[in-house]
Design a protein around this nucleic acid. Structure first.
Lengths: 259, 259
DNA sequence: AAGTGGTCTAGACCACCTG
DNA sequence: AGGTGGTCTAGACCACTTA
């Protein structure tokens, strides 16, 4: 029997009093979705790998193909899975060119497709300040890895940012390791540390460059910069990365689509 | 017979040579989606109204309910339709509280749910500059309506923006009409002019306030401001509104979700 | 009770990819 | 040719709303 057999058809398991405001009803495909997510989370299927076919999963879970399909559909629109007709369904990854810089919304004002270069300015450990610990769901004083870096368009600096990661999840992350790595950071994170970034929230403000920032970004002190604070989440909506970035927007802009 | 009867099952209508790179295959539900979109576009079903039930549409188009359902599903995720279990499927609108300020991404830094007040600073007609005409898909020199307004949080100005609309679509739009209207602009546009905003693209930059802007927004000249340029689209991906806004981000921030 | 959307099934067939 | 995802159907039943 599968894990599903324990769940009553109407999801009546725990709560059966209609006075409760609990979910009280969970469609089969949602339960399947949960099981699939758990397999992703546990690393049973790794980024880039194919998951079992719809038919096989249907057999495993003792439901029809259509039900599995609907579960996979939702995971695909959430960018956890990628469907490829004729080939299979794959665990999403930050490896492919298409999804590589999915989270970087900075675009050159002209149509160019600039590939920004990375320059590491520092990598150190520190005790998490109360506030940072809180947003990352850590105890204040927990160890953080801080990575400071610069992104350049040719010779011109464009982005200066600090990346904060829970030390417990990123043991062994060093400047050397990152310098020798070509490709997006998020690819390194998922491949080397098993932490895959799923979604992120950003808070954007306009700020004036202070003296130090101005120097690094090669702008006059007081120049307006875009401040971008990003909190990234992994499976199960667990926050695992905090970024504070400063973007020059004299030749680039942050593009966004509202839907 | 319905409009569908003219479409061969394999979409083989026009192009049948496999050497072409044309779509060459369009699922039934996509065709249904197109027909539904046309009905929305033509105003057959107005914002807020219910569209026919799935069964009725299935009968009209001579397809199964499941196929209609899939078409509606996609239109619902694109926010063109809203499903309400037990009641029906409705044309989306900017009227409801939930979707009212869907496009305004500005949020107070503390958790408050600030309701910004609108103050109209001007409303005039002008000939479209070449660039503006181009992004709006108009001939340069075409008439534009320009609306300048200020959004305030209590006494404090937060947003200053200019709205540019094609004059041909917004005949009779006056400052009086807008002043007497309570509720979101986009609600007025869809209710009074039949122009419904579906989605938008924004370009965001950090800029320094010039003297005039600083005065209106009550900040020192040179203060950093968020520049937000928005191009809004209606049915059929036709651009119909250009906005240039300046946001104070000393107590607010632009929030964004990356997925 | 009747009507609506929401779920689930079983089966057929199509489009795409690979060996 | 055989496997995978993608489409479509017909029918059953469930959940929610309204009258």
């Amino acid at each position: 029997m599968t894990a599903l057999s324990a769940i009553a058809p109407n999801g009546a398991g725990v709560s059966d009093s209609p006075t409760e405001l609990a979910p009280a009803f969970s469609p089969l495909y949602q339960q399947i979705k949960g099981l699939l997510t758990r397999s992703l989370q546990s690393g049973e299927w790794k980024p880039g790998e194919a998951i079992p076919s719809e038919m096989e999963l249907a057999g495993r879970f003792k439901v029809s193909q259509g039900t599995v399909r609907k579960a996979i559909d939702e995971l695909a629109t959430e960018n956890l899975l990628v469907r490829r007709q004729g080939k299979g369904t794959f665990v999403a990854t930050h490896a492919e060119a298409q999804t590589q810089y999915r989270f970087l919304r900075l675009t050159p004002d002209d149509g160019r497709s600039a590939r920004l270069q990375r320059r590491l300015l520092g990598c150190s450990r520190l005790r998490a300040p109360k506030e940072d610990a809180q947003v990352l769901g850590l105890k204040s004083g927990a160890t953080l890895v801080q990575v400071r870096r610069l992104l350049l368009d040719g010779e011109q600096p464009v982005v200066l940012d600090d990346i904060f990661l829970p030390g417990a999840l990123f043991k062994g992350l060093t400047a050397e390791r990152m310098r020798s790595y070509v490709g997006p950071m998020y690819r390194l994170f998922e491949a080397e540390f098993g932490v895959r970034m799923i979604r992120a929230e950003e808070k954007i403000r306009a700020v004036a460059a202070d003296a130090a920032q101005a120097l690094v970004l090669d702008v006059p002190p007081g120049a307006p910069l875009l401040s971008v604070e990003r909190l990234s989440y992994t499976y199960g909506d667990r926050p695992v990365e905090l970024r504070r970035g400063l973007y020059r927007t004299d030749h680039f802009h942050y593009r966004n689509e509202l839907m």
